[in-house]
Design a protein around this nucleic acid. Sequence first.
DNA 1: AGCCAGGCTAAAT
DNA 2: ATTTAGCATGGC
Length: 294
Amino acid sequence: MMSGVTQRIVIPVRDYDLAATLASGQAFRWREHASGWEGIIGQRWVWLTQTDENLVAETVGLDGPHANPCWLSHYLQSETDLESVLRTFPDDEPMRAAVRACRGLRLLHQEPWECLTSFILSSTKQIVQIQQIVALLCQRLGEPVAAPAHREPWFSFPTSTRIARCTEAELRDCKMGFRAPNLLRAARMIEAGEVDLARLGNLSVDEARTELLRLPGVGRKIANCVLLFAYGFQQAFPVDVWVMKALRELYFPRRRVSDKHIARFTATHFGPNAGYAQQYLFHYVRTKRPKTRK
DNA sequence: AGCCAGGCTAAAT
DNA sequence: ATTTAGCATGGC
C-alpha cells in the first residue's frame, strides 16, 4: 500500500468536543482508537486527537509543517463560533439539558456526494450497520489512499462516476439491499447532470431541498441531513425516529399530537440554527441511557 | 425467534 | 390528505 510522510497540523480550539462530533451520527467513516480517531477527509488519511487547547491532525501529504490547511478547518468547522450558535437555541429545559450533556458538539462540513450517499444508505439501518455498508462500499469501489505504512489500507469514497458505472448487483454485494437501486439511479442522475450537487450551495435552502428531493431514495429526512451536514444550512431540521421520540417526550409529554404538528413546531421553535439544536437533541437522547444506546 | 434499525415509496384508507 | 405495508440486511 502507498505510504508517505506524516505531517502534523495543530488547530487551537475552544468549545470543541471531537469525540461527540465524530460519534454523533453525522459522518460514518471515523474509527475510534484508544488515543484518537482515524479516517479519511477527501483523498487524505487523517489521524485526529484532541488536547485541552488544540485539535491535532496527523496526515500524509504535501502541506507545509506549519500549515493550517483550509480543507481541514473547513471539514471540522473549527472556526465556527459555537457560543454564538448556542445563544440562538431556545431557553427551555430540554435544550439546556442537551447542551449540558454534549457542549462542544459541532456540525461538520462534509463532501456533498459522500454525505448524500451515506444517508441514502442510512434508511432503517442502525449507525453501526451504516458504517459497515459505507466501509464495504469504499473498500470495493474507492481508490487507495496514502497512509502510514504500518496501518490498514484505506480507500477514498467512490465518486458518483464510479457508482454510476456499477451494476445493481455490485452494489447489493455491499449489503445495501433495497437501497442499491436508489443509489444507482441517484448516481446516474447526477452523472447525467439532472441534479448538480456543486450548485446547490448557491441556492436557497428550499430550492436546494427541492433539487435533492428529485433523487430516488431521498425524502425530507435525508434531504435535510444533506443540507445540514454537507452544505451548512443550519436551519435544516432532519426528523428521524430518535428526534421524533425526543420531541414528543420532552415537549409534548402525555399529549396526542400529530407528526405534522411537531414538524410545524420544529420550524418555528428552534430558531435560525434549528438543525444544530436538533443534533444536540439527537446525540443527547442517544447517549443519556447507556442501556438503550446502539 | 422475533423485533427493530438516523426512511422512502406506492398503495390503500 | 393522512395512514400503512413492503422493502434487504444484520444485531441483539
